[in-house]
Design a protein around this nucleic acid. Sequence first.
RNA 1: GCCGCGUUCGUCUAAGGGCUAGGACACCACCCUUUCACGGUGGUGAUACGGGUUCGAAUCCCGUACGCGGUACCA
Length: 511
Amino acid sequence: MAKKVRVRFAPSPTGGLHLGGVRTVLYNYLFARQHGGDFVLRIEDTDQSRYVPGAEEYIYECLKWCGLQPDESPQVGGPFAPYRQSERKSLYRQYAEFLVQEGKAYYAFDRPEELDSMRERFKTAENPSPQYDHKVRQEMRNSCALTFEETERLIADGVPHVIRIRMPENETVSFTDMIRGEVSFHTGLVDDKVLLKADGMPTYHLAVVVDDYLMKITHAFRGEEWLPSAPVHILLWKYLGWEADMPQWAHLPLILKPDGNGKLSKRDGDRLGFPVFAMNWTAKKEDGTTELTKGFRELGFLPEAFINMLAMLGWNDGTDQELFTLDELVQKFSIDRVHKGGAKFDFEKAKWFNHEWIKKADTASLKADVRRILADHDMSIIDDEQLGKVITLVKERCALMTDFVEQAGFFFQTPQKWDVDAIKPKWNEAKQAFFGDVINYLQQQTNWNGADLEHGFKELAAAKQIKAGEVLMPLRIMLVGGKFGPGVFDIAAIIGKEETIVRVKKVLELL
RNA sequence: GCCGCGUUCGUCUAAGGGCUAGGACACCACCCUUUCACGGUGGUGAUACGGGUUCGAAUCCCGUACGCGGUACCA
């Protein structure tokens, strides 16, 4: 019988959650759901110097917003708790020591300065970054070069030390990546990675193997940047005697910056004016000030659209379909169709996805968000039914939820400024007089609905020998403030008689 | 430098030896609309290069170029 599928997302809580991170979560989630498996969230906080308060809570909030909640996590617990590596610290040492006993790892007492000087010493034009590997191992201060007694004494004296893996000099490590197929490495070219740090914390390399084993992870998804260290992990699985339980690996392609090449970073977002983090993130800088980085959520993305867009960045179902619900993705997702090459992030396309989702969202589901966004701009909506009508009328004009401020704001608030310059060039006495008559007409109007208003307005224009087309734009600007929005008479119908007349009068004074 | 991974319109991608290399975003034009948007129709636009294998290559193989990733007591 096949093992139950278990996957994990293992972020390091050091700041805002990057788009690529969310995509990794998504693929994990889709795979787990599709196979009736478990999705685990594990916090990789083994670097105490990079601890950032609030970053962990931020991750929970992001996953919640995206609707990709883990089955097990530090927050909800689970059978393999604790899920925070800092709380699992005591677990790791025994495995590292076991490897030392087996001759697969060794103690290293080199101080940071000694490592620097080694790199300096072996640095050449040919080899700009020398590694701590079999070539220099014997020249360093470690249990391979030292005698047993010397090593024992250093340890007894409490000299700080790390444990490093002893990479074989001449072996080939290969494995089958679910996305890339057969991948292989020569061990002689890989360095002796630190497994256990001097502070007793494991490095990623040890922790990921130990925890994936202990947590019975069956499939491991991670970014392509991890591919070069895969041979270390594979050897660790083998040396620890767990080879039969090793998860299947899948190294996901990177998300690249839109211009040029390279991994998409927060900086690119700042530079090009689009978000990279899922939600707003406020970083505290060293000088005590804070720096806010905008997120997709606050910029007006719907989680469904965000997820949909991310899913398509590196995967497709082989048809022309681009719009998918989470459920459809769970149904249709397949690792074989995940691409090998990285994808440049295109914010315009991201907005298109969001626009599509806003258009197809039903009005009721948008109400709460629109209400909140308008409230942020000092517009409180009392009439819920009216809000519904407005949303239905303007949602096809909104690519971002925040566009509702401009597209719906004038329904609830008299415009602050009017584009009178668009009226003035063709304005004349006759039109001025006509709008005086319009006000009279509106005041007498008893059937206040779009169709009747339009009919009445046009009749009036005809009676005054004025082409309707010449006064429609002025009317629009009076009611809306600018040259945009749905049908003018629909707008008049919604804002009501009193407000319509107020706006017409106000602009008449400005002309 | 070394190692690994990649490479189809500007961008995301389809085509897994066989019709004029298909779709989407963006862009342009037209239609619809007395605004904007939505919608509709059409257009510009790609297999990095060089060798093989084959009747036939975007597709398989080799090389080159380019790009990216890694080369930390960071993940």
